[in-house]
Design a protein around this nucleic acid. Structure first.
Lengths: 155, 155
DNA sequence: GGCATATGGTTTTATCATGCAACCACACAA
DNA sequence: TTGTGTGGTTGCATGATAAAACCATATGCC
């Protein structure tokens, strides 16, 4: 029925990504995790979200291999949530979202922070899409091709 | 009171972006629009979504300035939905989502298409984050700074 | 013109997810 | 033992989502 139309089986990679992190909280949790947050309570107080929702989201992110639970860290025998490589791999997505807001937001003066190069303190460059040989590509310069048959034997 | 926790007033640009396109359909609609779809029926049959949801989403995207309604185009006096510059600006977000799936998906063999450079037919390069001077940046090389006070007089 | 059909939605209704609050379990301290 | 803080789970109320029916307009056909 309503089933939230899981995109899990969809062939479109965008849909597949959205299936893992296309809700209202997951990317914000990841954002905080990239910032170093690890504990349930940290996420909860920083994001101001309901604890049950946080609980569900954390479990979902763990199930998707984006977060992993570390048995403990500071002695207190609770668990922590740390990003996996897959989780850290979402960074460009967050940067893209941030830059889109910075460029197109109707009320940019409400944006509190900017992402800067730590070494120079200067804003990072806009993400750009390039060809293998380095040419800058616009959306119109790209097209979709069917994925070539898997090279590694599947059976 | 569930209120869906609108992030509209939030100072975080990521949250602000998610407020506009952080649901399960908006980015897919935009994806199809980038592919050239314009008509209600095209979106509906291509995405296989309920018409009422599509209706609500289209209106929301128009309200957010991502789509605009064009009075007609092929004579039939209905309206079309075309991307604004703000809408086309989401392209890096979609590319980032796609590449994340391509790189980390647990079942990459289910992914049907790859994004290629139209001229060469070769996959596009991974998005990378660079400093103003062109240095490649990792997440750890970046940090957040408070936004400098608006330079253009607001009153 | 009259009728059928396709397009472009809106309305209705059922179900699911979200969010707040309250509650529970465990660890640690006194 | 009791108290307190962290880390959750459990109940509801409400809103979002989805499927299907319905409606309005436009077009094709006669």
């Amino acid at each position: 029925m309503v089933k939230r139309t899981s995109f899990e089986g969809d062939a479109c990679p965008i849909a597949r990504s959205l299936d893992a992190l296309g809700d209202w909280w997951s990317l914000l949790i990841i954002r905080e995790a990239l910032f170093g947050l690890r504990r349930f309570g940290e996420f909860q107080s920083k994001l101001g979200m309901a604890k049950n929702i946080l609980s569900v989201r954390l479990r979902s992110l763990v199930d998707h291999g984006i977060l992993a639970t570390a048995p403990a860290s500071d002695g207190s025998a609770y668990q922590e949530y740390v990003l996996t490589p897959k989780g850290r791999g979402t960074f460009p997505i967050l940067v893209a979202l941030r830059q889109w807001s910075e460029e197109f937001d109707d009320a940019p003066e409400e944006i509190a922070t900017i992402l800067v190069d730590r070494a120079k303190g200067r804003p990072v460059k806009k993400l750009e899409m390039r060809a293998e040989d380095g040419r800058l590509l616009s959306p119109a310069d790209t097209t979709l091709k069917p994925r070539p048959a898997s090279r590694r034997r599947s059976a």
